[in-house]
């Protein structure tokens, strides 16, 4: 324990020493770690970051619902449901395959350009739609892995009690499946949260876009550091919260049993 601590401290001290004594350090420090720039740009970026948070929260709600829907469709058994399963497969293949930024570009610029009546033209709206389409494909696969990990004997038990296929899914399969996939779900949501920065490309002024604006005005890169810190400050509590959720669930089920 003590040795690990000492070796860690020494390791980072050496790296630190090498970096701050490099010939380019004063310029890098000025360009990336400028305290004054940081203080000046942070409030504006933090305000723009609220757009990211809004994007993320709205998209996440729709993703959780749409992805679950796709995953359930894909697990329908029998030849009758083949067309539905095939559709679900095509959907996931397509939207996992296309780079997110292409989807955002195509919908963000293409859909409003159609000039159809009733079709929203707001970039924010199309940003949400793009993220929902792309991430639902990933999250549907996560759900599906969860659904398939529930042992068939659970289905047998549920059906043997006279529960319908849908009731078995709702009360027996999905609750167990979702509990199991909470860590990978969170993983995808951190990914989603970071990808909200991609929508800068269609003109939504969020944190990254704001940092670009600040940086262009001052020829200083510190605003990007501020942006990075905001993203990290948002994801870390989310990760700890998930850890806590998992632990609480396990404790509740196994109190008294060996962990």
């Amino acid at each position: 324990m003590l040795i690990a601590l000492i070796s860690t401290v020494v390791f980072f001290a050496v790296i630190w020493w090498i970096v701050v004594h490099s010939s380019g350090w004063p310029e890098v420090k000025q360009a990336f770690f400028n305290g004054k720039q940081f203080r000046e740009s942070l409030p504006g970026i933090a305000k723009a970051f609220l757009v990211n948070v809004r994007l993320f929260l709205i998209a996440e709600v729709f993703i959780l619902i749409l992805a679950l829907f796709i995953a359930v469709l894909r697990s329908l058994p029998g030849p009758v449901f083949f067309p539905i399963r095939a559709l679900a497969i095509v959907y996931t293949d397509l939207f996992r395959g296309i780079p997110t930024i292409l989807v955002i570009y195509t919908l963000g610029f293409g859909a409003p350009a159609l000039q159809l009546q009733g079709v929203p033209t707001s970039p924010f709206f199309w940003a949400v739609v793009s993220l929902v389409l792309v991430y639902s494909a990933y999250v549907a696969e996560v759900y599906r892995a969860g659904i398939e990990s529930v042992h068939p004997s659970q289905v047998a038990a549920a059906r043997s009690l006279g529960l319908s296929r849908w009731q078995s899914m709702r009360f027996v399969i999905l609750p167990q499946a979702i509990r199991r996939v909470i860590p990978p779900l969170l993983n995808d949501f951190i990914g989603l949260q970071k990808d909200t920065a991609l929508v800068a490309s269609i003109g939504v002024v969020e944190a990254f876009r704001q940092a670009q604006i600040d940086s262009a005005a001052t020829f200083n890169f510190t605003p990007f550091l501020a942006t990075a810190l905001l993203f990290v400050a948002f994801t870390i509590p989310l990760a700890r919260f998930t850890d806590w959720l998992i632990l609480r669930d396990r404790r509740r089920r196994q109190t008294g049993a060996a962990l």
Partner: peptide, 18 residues
């Protein structure tokens, strides 16, 4: 489903909902 409600079955591995 109606038929199964009239027939109880108990399995070797319990199959309770955990």
């Amino acid at each position: 489903n109606r038929v199964r409600r009239r027939i109880g079955i108990v399995f070797q591995a319990f199959n309770l909902f955990p």
